[in-house]
Amino acid sequence: MSTDFQAARAALGARLRELRVSAPGGQRLTGSLLAERLGWPQSKVSKLENGRQTPTAEDLRAWAKATGQPEVFDELHARLQGFESSVRSWRRQLAAGHRPVQETWNSLIADTSVMHLWQNSVIPGMLQTPDYARHIFLRYAALRTSVRDTEDAVRARIKRQEWLFRPGKKFHFLVWEAALRVRICPLSVLAAQLDRLTGLIGMDTVSLGIVPFSAPLKLLPGNGFVILDERLATTEDWHAELWLDDADTVATYMRVWKTLSESAVYGHEAQQIITQARRSLDAP
């Protein structure tokens, strides 16, 4: 968990404690009494006040009401939205399945003119075939024990590919060779996926660079990330998706992308690497 996120959560916890201590009514409202009033275990009150648990909007509304200060809910909710906008836990995002997450991304891409993407371990979502995407969603739904809305999620992701054919857009994809060879799906599905990639080379709206295993690197591959119009950078970890919009951070990600791109090959050379990966699937 990022330090900024934890600091913001601790500050919200301190504010909750302040509301409890200053609750009107004359009687000192202890943590135990508040827990009883809310019907919660006392440990939950302690965790929220000490910044060890992230409250939901419903938790904050109940807290404000139970401490006799319902009017502070808007303030508490704004704090929550402020620090959750940068660290979006998968547990919360996937509460209703993968489709809503994909639809959020569809909206982001619709409002984006230029996208830069680095991916080191999987084919980028906007370039995936339906079968490849299906296997990715199934793997992550199993890992995160989330709602299995696989077919709806696949349709939403594939719909995003319509933007690849819209004039005025530019998508700069940068992929490490490892992503071409990761066997996260049956070999027949991976073969079709690699065939799909070769067909994208030369499109007006798409720049596809491949960083070969043999290329010298100035930076370690690191996590995959996306930069939208140099206004927002996003990256994923196992627990959350990070949305980073401060100018210095976005500029750092842009420098990383440009540095990695110096090791990439394009056009015919990129097509050769994809073809080699495709042929390796037929090797005994």
Rank of each mutant, 00 (worst) to 15 (best):
F83Y: 15
A96Q: 14
P124M: 12
A153N: 02
L174Y: 05
I123A: 07
A110E: 10
L117H: 06
H77S: 15
A96C: 11
P186L: 14
D149P: 03
V182F: 09
I158S: 01
R157N: 06
W105Y: 14
S113D: 07
P100G: 09
R166A: 12
Q81L: 14
L94V: 11
R92C: 10
F173Q: 08
F165Y: 14
Q81I: 08
S107E: 15
V122D: 05
H135F: 11
K170E: 13
L117R: 04
S113W: 01
L127E: 05
V101T: 14
R99Y: 00
R155G: 08
C185L: 04
V154F: 07
H77V: 03
I109E: 15
E103N: 12
L143G: 02
H77C: 10
V87P: 00
E75C: 03
D152Q: 13
L108C: 06
L180Y: 03
H77G: 06
E84G: 09
F173E: 01
V147N: 09
L164M: 07
S86Q: 09
A78I: 00
W163R: 13
A179D: 13
G168F: 04
K170D: 13
E151I: 07
F83M: 09
I184E: 10
Q161W: 14
R99P: 00
F137M: 11
L143V: 11
V182Q: 15
P124R: 11
R157D: 04
P130G: 06
L108G: 04
R79L: 14
Q81F: 05
W176P: 05
L108Q: 10
A133S: 04
L117F: 00
L127S: 03
G82M: 08
S121R: 09
R134G: 09
T112N: 00
K169T: 10
M115A: 11
K170H: 15
I123N: 03
R157L: 08
T129Q: 02
L108H: 07
Y132S: 04
L117T: 02
F83A: 10
C185P: 00
E103V: 09
T112Y: 01
Q128T: 04
A110N: 09
H98K: 08
G82F: 05
I136W: 01
P100V: 05
M126H: 04
R144K: 14
E103Y: 03
H116T: 01
F137T: 03
W176C: 14
R144W: 08
W90P: 14
F165I: 07
R181T: 11
C185I: 03
L127W: 04
D152L: 05
C185K: 01
L174G: 02
E162N: 10
I158M: 07
P100W: 06
I136Y: 02
A78R: 14
P186C: 06
M115W: 03
C185R: 04
A142H: 13
R91C: 10
V175W: 01
Q161Y: 09
A153E: 06
L127A: 10
M115L: 15
S85Y: 06
G168Y: 02
I109N: 15
A133C: 03
A110V: 05
Q119M: 12
P130H: 03
P186S: 05
R99G: 02
V122M: 13
Q128R: 08
Q102C: 07
A153H: 01
E84Q: 15
T150D: 00
E75H: 02
R139T: 07
M126Q: 10
F171E: 02
S107A: 15
L117W: 00
A178R: 07
A95D: 12
K169C: 11
R181D: 12
R148L: 06
L164T: 02
F165E: 15
M115C: 13
S107N: 14
